[in-house]
Each structure stands twice: as C-alpha cells, then as structure tokens.
C-alpha cells in the first residue's frame, strides 16, 4: 500500500469518475434494452471496458483497471443498478487485470488488451446465453448476438487505447508509469 502514491490513486479515481458518469445513462439503457431488445445490450457492453482500458493503458501499473472500475461502480450506483453496479464493474476490472497479471505486467502491447477483452467477452457470452436462454433462439440470432458483443468490446478497447495515447500526449500521466527508464538520470543526480 505504501508504494502506491495518492496521485496514482486519484488519477485512477478521476478516470473512474468519468467512466462512472458515462455508465449511469448506460445502466438506464441497459435496463431498457434488457426489457425490450436484448440484442442491443450486446452493443453497449463495450462501455464497461472503456474506463479500465484507458486507465491501464495510461498509467501502466498493476491494479489500475480494478481501481478505476471500482470507482466507476461507486459512481454509477446512482442508477437503477444500485450496489450491483460495483459488482459488475469490479468483475470487468478484475478480468482485464488478469491478462496483464499472467504476463507479470511486463507486456503493454495493444494485442494483449484485445486478447484480454476477447477472453472476458467469451466468458460474458456464456453467462448471457444461460440468462437469456439463448440456446432456444435461432442460429442467426446467436451469431448476430456474438458478433455484436465482440465488435462492441473491440471498439471499446480501440477507443480506450486511443484515448490513453492522446491523454499521454497532454502530459497528465507524467511520472506515473514506472516502466520508463529515466534517461541521463544518473548524470543529473551526480551534478545536482
């Protein structure tokens, strides 16, 4: 806990707050869609991924996705989802962390983001199939549902990565990511 700076916590909190604000209407939409056109739920699942992907890509530190999604869950409790919002977002955050955990937080390439999101989405598809009794639907419905869900997730990862890159350009993540080695650090320290 000691090694985690407040600045890192609050940076994730800020991204989480923004993601949470986004998730409030999305939660309302999700309720409306589940009730009327579940196919459309597949389209919006990506929204849960944008926040944690952005945070992870921006600060590149363990726990960023979990923290960001936890905060976005707390914020989006102000929707019909209530406390269950936290459970949902924490699940997404934890799933995203997994891909990076098994590579010991050494790999930060885009493919890992896509692969992790894909793996999570496959798991999510499985639960969705049970919930909606998807086996009883026609094949084309199933194919459409799966396609939409995957496309939604990939689009979210793409958007998150792009957003993170543009944010990095603005310099807000300066000094947060531990990965980058500081050039001429030793000389600087020597002459200081």
């Amino acid at each position: 806990m000691k090694s985690v700076t407040t600045r890192y916590l609050m940076t994730c909190a800020a991204i989480g707050a923004a993601a949470g604000v986004l998730l409030i209407p999305v939660n309302f939409l999700a309720f409306a869609f589940t009730a009327t056109a579940p196919m459309l739920v597949a389209v919006i699942v990506g929204f849960w991924l944008v926040g944690p992907v952005t945070a992870l890509a921006l600060v590149r530190r363990p726990g960023a996705a979990l923290l960001t999604s936890g905060v976005s869950g707390v914020i989006s409790m102000a929707s019909p989802a209530g406390p269950s919002a936290i459970v949902t977002t924490l699940m997404v955050g934890a799933a995203l962390e997994l891909g990076f955990l098994i590579t010991f937080y050494k790999v930060w390439k885009p493919w890992l983001f896509y692969a992790t999101a894909t793996a999570f989405q496959l798991y999510y598809l499985y639960t969705a199939f049970t919930f909606y009794e998807m086996e009883t639907t026609s094949t084309w419905t199933q194919v459409l549902f799966c396609t939409l869900m995957m496309v939604s997730a990939w689009a979210a990862v793409w958007a998150g990565l792009r957003l993170a890159a543009r944010l990095a350009d603005t310099g807000v993540a300066r000094g947060l990511a531990p990965r980058r080695t500081v050039a001429n650090a030793d000389t600087a320290r020597a002459d200081v």
Partner: peptide
C-alpha cells in the same frame, strides 16, 4: 475533459 480531470485529481 479527462486531462482536466486528471490534473485536478493530481
């Protein structure tokens, strides 16, 4: 929006 938010958070 996010850049401003993160600055503020900092």
């Amino acid at each position: 929006l996010l850049a401003g938010g993160i600055r503020h958070a900092e």
